[in-house]
Design a protein around this nucleic acid. Structure first.
Lengths: 163, 163
DNA sequence: TGAAATCCCATAAAATCCCATTGTATCCCG
DNA sequence: CGGGATACAATGGGATTTTATGGGATTTCA
């Protein structure tokens, strides 16, 4: 069970004074090919200091995986607690936000804080999901490949030169 | 069998002097997409010191799950008793309350005490259902993941409370 | 008849909609 | 192939609507 259309590419967009950001059109087009919703779900990334984002199609996939895990382990009492915990993380620790006709979301303050996003948001496609970074934190992270940092630098220059 | 729309996200709302609380709009919108009722059912959570809440659509699903369990185990005498017990918990130990045109319920005093809810109610989406917590009890519970406690702390700060 | 529930209105802050601008990529046609 | 016309993406700002919440007035019912 895999999703047919994958998120790829990168973009650096501004977060305006009201906290709005444009979701890059190449990501929106994947969302709209996967389903007919116009929302994204935001969560803190488990490993990196950034946000993980995905569409309802991926959320449904994730949810059904959890349900199957529970059914398989239903007799095990420890599994019940683990299920409760994962369910809380999957749903309570995430936020679903719609994007408007111009492709923008209102960045929820909590997620903005969790992802340490300032006035620039770097979008990175990662296949089934995508990530949103504070570009400086990506440049500072030792685990990130240099080639990817070059892309971030390029996006930053591009924006510096044009404005 | 699964419900299409899922409860997701978190919010911290005030319980006023009359015992009224606003159900967060993102939860209400799920309830109203699942069916045309404007009520929620409250119950003590089986594992955590909080309340479990859901809409009529989920109540129906829960009921049919119970029925199927009974049919499957019809020959087993223990199953009869378990069915009776679970049925009592599912219906007698719950309260259904409507929310008004401004999205508020009047918190039933018994449930408020069972959930130990004071003047702040933390709403957590958990997919098919949602939970209502006294935020302090969540912070004090060892079984709750730290990332989720961070969210509770954020909601408290946002509101200007100390923790 | 008094406490509790319901209804109604008010308000501030936040979210959403609508319209305008700009820069860039794409198309079209001579 | 040049160059203008066109479409669309990203973004800014004002106007409008929704949300959460408080409080008064009215109704219910035991």
């Amino acid at each position: 069970m895999a999703l047919e259309h994958l998120f790829q590419g990168s973009a650096l967009n501004a977060v305006d004074a009201k906290g709005r950001v444009s979701i890059p059109s190449f990501l929106r087009s994947v969302i709209e090919r996967r389903g007919d919703a116009r929302t994204i779900t935001l969560a803190k990334h488990e490993a990196f200091p950034c946000l993980s984002a995905y569409d309802p199609a991926y959320a449904a996939l994730k949810h059904s995986k959890l349900e199957r895990l529970l059914e398989k382990e239903e007799t095990n009492p420890d599994a019940q607690l683990e299920y409760q915990q994962r369910n809380l993380m999957a749903f309570a620790a995430t936020e679903e936000v719609p994007y408007d006709s111009s492709g923008r979301i209102l960045f929820p303050p909590m997620m903005r804080r969790k992802g340490q996003i300032g006035d620039l948001a770097l979008f990175l496609g990662t296949g089934e999901t995508f990530q949103i970074w504070n570009p400086q934190l990506l440049l500072d992270d030792k685990r990130i490949p240099e080639d990817l940092k070059d892309i971030a630098r390029f996006r930053l220059e591009e924006r510096g030169a044009s404005s």
